[in-house]
C-alpha cells in the first residue's frame, strides 16, 4: 500500500450530500476482476453525457462540462471536498479504487459511509471528517479562490488552510500507523497467528457446531 504522510494539493469542491458508491463507480464497471483502471469511470454517469460501458476509449466519450472534475480549474486535484455521508451504500471497494486511480489522495467531508470509510484506509486514501462549520468554511474559501489548495499532515492530524489556520482531525491510531508506513493489514495480523490458532482451538471445543463440515 502507498504511504500517506503529507499532501499539498489542489482541492475540488464537490457540493453534494449522500454521494453513494453506485454514483462513485456505477455497477457496469464492477465486472472487472482487476483492482486497477477504474479511474476513467469515476462518477461515470455524472461525468459523461453518454452512457458508459467497460472497455470504452475515454477519448471517444462526451464529457459533461458542468461536472466539477471536468472543469479545467480542478484538473490535477488530489483532495475532494464533499458534504455529509459521502460513500454511503454498497461495500464495493471499487469506489476507493476508482478515486485513487483517478488521482485523489484525500477526501474531506462531515461524514462518510461506514464501510467506504474503512475501505479508503486499505487503499492509501485518507478520509478526513471535520465539523460542519469547518467544511462550510472550506467550501466558501474554495469558491472564492481559484487554484485553492490545502495542506494535509497526517502525522500532526491537521488540515492547513492557505491563510495558515490549522484544522485538526481525528483518526484511529492504528489506521494512522498503517497509512504512515504503508503497511498491509494482513502481514500485521499474521504476527498474531498463534493467538488466532489458540482462540480457534478453544472455540472448536466449546462450540463445535460452528465448525460443522457435514454438507
Amino acid at each position: 500500500m502507498r504511504k500517506f504522510t503529507q499532501l499539498d494539493a489542489l482541492v475540488a469542491p464537490f457540493d453534494r450530500a449522500n454521494v453513494d458508491t453506485d454514483a462513485i463507480i456505477p455497477k457496469q464497471f464492477l465486472k472487472s476482476i482487476k483492482r486497477s483502471g477504474f479511474g476513467q469511470n469515476l462518477f461515470d454517469e455524472w461525468r459523461y453525457l453518454d452512457h458508459g460501458e467497460p472497455g470504452q476509449d475515454p477519448a471517444s466519450r462526451l464529457p459533461n462540462p458542468d461536472f466539477v472534475l471536468n472543469q479545467p480549474r480542478y484538473r490535477g486535484a488530489a483532495i475532494l471536498l464533499t458534504r455529509d455521508n459521502f460513500g454511503c451504500g454498497s461495500s464495493r471497494e471499487h469506489a476507493p479504487w476508482a478515486l485513487e486511480d483517478f488521482g485523489l489522495r484525500a477526501l474531506i467531508g462531515t461524514s462518510f459511509g461506514d464501510i467506504f470509510y474503512n475501505n479508503c484506509f486499505k487503499n492509501g486514501l485518507l478520509p478526513i471528517r471535520l465539523p460542519k462549520v469547518e467544511v462550510d468554511g472550506l467550501f466558501d474559501q474554495a469558491a472564492h479562490a481559484p487554484g485553492y489548495r490545502l495542506r494535509i499532515n497526517l502525522e500532526t492530524q491537521t488540515v492547513i488552510r492557505p491563510d495558515g489556520k490549522a484544522l485538526s482531525f481525528e483518526v484511529d491510531a492504528f489506521r494512522k500507523f498503517c497509512l504512515l508506513n504503508g503497511y498491509d493489514d494482513i502481514g500485521l495480523t499474521l504476527r498474531h497467528a498463534d493467538k488466532i490458532r489458540e482462540f480457534e482451538a478453544i472455540r472448536r471445543i466449546e462450540q463445535p457446531w460452528l465448525f460443522s463440515e457435514n454438507l
Binding site: 483492482r35 461495500s91 464495493r92 471497494e93 471499487h94 476507493p96 464501510i115 474503512n118 475501505n119 486499505k122 487503499n123 492504528f174 493489514d185 494482513i186 495480523t189 499474521l190 497467528a193 488466532i196 480457534e200
Partner: peptide
C-alpha cells in the same frame, strides 16, 4: 466488508 477485508479474512480468519 470491502474486498481488501475479504482478502484479510481469507488469509487470517479475522477482521480488524
Amino acid at each position: 466488508i470491502g474486498t481488501s477485508e475479504v482478502e484479510h479474512v481469507l488469509a487470517t480468519q479475522c477482521l480488524l
